[in-house]
Nucleic acid binder design. Structure first.
Length: 267
DNA sequence: AATGGGACCTGCGCGC
DNA sequence: TGCGCGCAGGTCCCAT
């Protein structure tokens, strides 16, 4: 669900919608999503504070605040940020802003995490993140793969290896690069590594242009769906014909995750 | 080091 | 119609 393109879409919209605005009040409808500090402190620390900068690191969203602290938001699987928001039964936290509108954090499954920190760079999660696909050269990418014997698809989803790619875009990029998701990373040819590098970037770029993939819970900040789903070639297409060769798309489990691929095109 | 499994959760779609 | 169940997948944690 929310992977790099989805979080980037929300980040860009947030910059247009809430940057510079002041938080006047925070309502907590379900405290489970507040990971730190304690809910009452969380509310107090945000009251009267302005949103000075909005960043994204991998799938993590960060608001830098006028009180020198930062609000870090991870949407995990089903988190949504909606603006302007209205409370629904899935609204867990809402931020009242100085213009009278609300920014809502909705999360059906309560996996999402909000935390206020002094320095987001010191978060363990952030420290562990690998580079984003756009932050490495082809040479670096090749060297990173050469050092790994593990299967390529779980590796692409490993945020400490590269950050931002999840189950959906790993599957799509591997299809476009014609690589079997179960192949050993170090066993890819130079050509395959180059194709994969290019296709990861191209897939993420395109997905951002279409404002993400709205399957399950993801929507843009406005609440509208992203439209990249119609460009998916394998994800969630088990039993459907491959768009290249007509072979039936298969679904297997890899690293405990549903993995879609064309057994003929991907070798 | 690599891999598998479970945990965290809810709601959906399935089979009966 | 309704019930129980498997399943979705981001991240962490533990076991092998």
């Amino acid at each position: 669900m929310p992977e790099l393109p989805e979080v980037e879409t929300i980040k860009r919209e947030l910059e247009k919608a809430v940057l510079g605005k002041k938080i006047t009040k925070v309502c907590i409808h379900h405290a489970r999503v507040i990971r730190s500090p304690a809910p009452a402190v969380f509310q107090k620390q945000l009251k009267g504070v302005a949103i000075k900068k909005i960043l994204r690191k991998g799938k993590l969203l960060i608001f830098e605040l006028s009180n020198a602290k930062a609000l870090a938001i991870h949407l995990k699987m089903t988190g949504q940020l909606i603006y302007p928001g209205q409370d629904t039964k899935e609204t867990r936290v809402c931020f009242h802003l100085s213009n009278g509108k609300k920014l809502s954090f909705n999360d059906r499954r309560l996996f999402g995490e909000l935390r206020i920190v002094d320095d987001w760079r010191q978060l363990q999660f952030v420290k562990g993140l690998g580079p984003e696909p756009f932050e490495v050269s082809i040479e670096q990418f090749k060297a990173m793969l050469a050092a790994k014997k593990t299967r390529i698809k779980p590796l692409l989803m490993d945020q400490t290896f590269i950050s931002g790619v999840g189950n959906l875009y790993a599957a799509e990029a591997l299809f476009r690069a014609r690589i079997d998701p179960g192949r050993a990373a170090s066993g890819l040819s130079e050509k395959e590594k180059e194709a994969l590098f290019n296709e990861i970037r191209a897939t993420l770029d395109e997905a951002i242009r279409y404002k993400g993939s709205s399957i399950d819970q993801y929507v843009q900040l406005s609440g509208r769906p992203g439209s990249f789903v119609s460009h998916h070639q394998v994800y969630d297409k088990e039993g459907k014909p491959c768009l290249i060769c007509g072979t039936v798309i298969k679904r297997i489990a890899l690293g405990g995750r549903g993995t879609y691929f064309c057994p003929k095109c991907q070798r």
